[in-house]
Simulated scan of single mutants.
Amino acid sequence: MNGKRKVTTENLIRLAGLFAILAGILYIGIQIFHPEDNLSSVNTNLWVIVASLTIAMSIFSLIGILGIYITQAEETGWLGLVGFVTFSLFWLVSMSFSFTEAFVLPLLTNDAPNFVNGILGIFGGTKSEVELGIFPTLAPFAGGLYMLGGILLGIATLRAGVFPRILGVLLAFSAVVTLAAAIIPHPFDRILAIPMGIAFIWLGSILFSGHERSNGK
C-alpha cells in the first residue's frame, strides 16, 4: 500500500488544472489552424482533425471549469454555481456541433451539399437554402450561454478572491468581447476566442501549481 499513490482532492484539482491548460492551448490553436468554412474543406483531413480536437477541447474545458468552480465554490455562492452550470452547458452544446462537423458533414458533401453549406453558413451569417432543423436556433442559444456563463463565472471569481482578481476580469471580458463578432466578419472573428484561451491557461496553471489562494490580489 505504501508504494501506491493516493487519489486526493488536491491531485484531482491539479489534474483539472492541466485539462484547463490543454483546453486553452487548443482553443487558441484551433483558431489559427481552422480551415476555411467551405464545402471543399469539409472533405480534408485537416477539417476532421480540427473538428475532433474541438471535441477534445470541449471535454477538457468541462473538466477544467469544474476544477475552477470547485476550488472557489464556497466563496462564489449561487452566482458561481449559475455561472458554472451555464458555461458548462455551452461546452456541451459546442460538442454537438463539433461532432456533427467531424463525423456527419464529411459524409454528406456529395449527397446533401446544400445541407453542409447551410451548416457552415450558420457561423458565417449565410442563409441556408434547405431546412437545418434545430441547428440555426441552437447556435445563438449556445452563444448566449457562452457569454452569460463567462460573465457570471468571471464576476463570481472576481468577488471570491480565491484566484487573482484580474482573472475574474479577464474571464468576464473574454465572454463580453464576443459581441464584437457582430461587426468583425467571419472568419476574422475567431481572434475573439484568444482571450478566453489565455484565461483558461492562466487559471489552469494556478490550479496545477496548487497556489490558487490569492488573498484578493
Rank of each mutant, 00 (worst) to 15 (best):
L179N: 09
D111I: 13
T126E: 14
L153H: 04
G121Y: 06
A102D: 03
N117D: 07
Y69V: 07
L92Y: 04
T100M: 15
L108N: 04
G133D: 08
L158T: 01
L167D: 03
M147S: 09
I166F: 15
F97Q: 06
N117V: 01
S96L: 12
W78F: 10
T126S: 09
G144F: 08
T137A: 15
R190V: 06
F115Q: 03
F141L: 15
F135H: 05
L120Y: 01
G154P: 01
K127N: 12
N110L: 12
G83A: 07
I151W: 02
I166S: 14
T100P: 01
G144H: 03
I166G: 12
T86C: 08
N114S: 11
G149Q: 10
F123G: 15
W78M: 14
V176A: 13
F84T: 06
G143M: 12
A182Y: 13
N114C: 02
T76N: 06
F188M: 13
G80P: 04
G150S: 14
A181V: 08
L79M: 15
S128C: 05
R159C: 05
F84G: 07
L120A: 04
P140E: 07
T126W: 01
M147N: 06
I183R: 00
E75S: 14
A180Q: 03
M147H: 02
Q72Y: 07
G144V: 10
T76V: 15
P113H: 07
G143T: 08
I134W: 14
L138Q: 11
L145D: 10
E131L: 10
V82K: 01
I151R: 00
G77L: 12
L132V: 08
I166W: 14
L167R: 02
G121R: 03
F97S: 06
I155T: 04
G133L: 12
G143S: 09
R159I: 15
S98R: 05
F103H: 01
P113T: 02
L170C: 09
T71D: 02
T137M: 13
T109Y: 05
